[in-house]
Computed example of a mutant assay.
Amino acid sequence: MKAKDAELLNGLALAYMGDAAYEQSIREHLLTNGQTKPNQLHRLATNYVSAKAQAWLIDELIEEDRLNEVEIEFYKRGRNAKSYSKAKNTDGSTYNKSSGFEAVMGYLYLTKQEDRLHELIEVCIKKVDKALA
């Protein structure tokens, strides 16, 4: 997909792709760190990929001024997108923030900004790891 085409996608389409890109990185992180039991992998991954975790992470990234103006725009596009499905296990605000988080990840992935994507994911992994310690 061309970068210009990716930039035209709606927030939920970007979030759809971002969810997959982020979760794959989390799975790799867990496996690289020696986690191999399926139930344990799923339980640990939830600490990184749940709507609550992603909402917290995006708040942290914004508070620490880690996102540039374009990334903030794509966060808002994902956060403000009208979803016709109900959030599971969380409130609407948290769900919307997590959609915004995923939209940023999707935007970076689809526009081939791999270094930036991995940089933000590494920051997020470190934050969750620190919170779990």
Rank of each mutant, 00 (worst) to 15 (best):
K2F: 10
K2Y: 11
A3L: 01
K4W: 03
K4R: 14
D5F: 07
D5L: 14
E7W: 04
L8V: 03
N10H: 04
L14Q: 09
D19N: 14
A21I: 11
R27C: 10
L30S: 09
L30I: 12
N33R: 06
G34F: 10
P38Q: 09
P38D: 12
P38Y: 11
Q40D: 10
H42C: 14
L44I: 10
L44K: 09
S50L: 04
I58F: 02
E60Y: 14
L61K: 03
I72Q: 03
E73G: 07
F74I: 01
K76E: 13
R77P: 10
G78S: 06
N80R: 12
S83I: 04
S83A: 14
K86A: 13
A87R: 00
K88R: 12
K88W: 03
G92T: 15
G92S: 14
T94G: 09
Y95F: 14
S98R: 08
S99E: 10
F101V: 06
A103R: 11
Y107W: 04
L108W: 09
Y109P: 01
Y109N: 12
L110C: 05
T111S: 02
K112L: 13
Q113V: 01
H118C: 13
E119A: 12
E119I: 08
L120F: 08
C124K: 04
I125Q: 04
V128K: 09
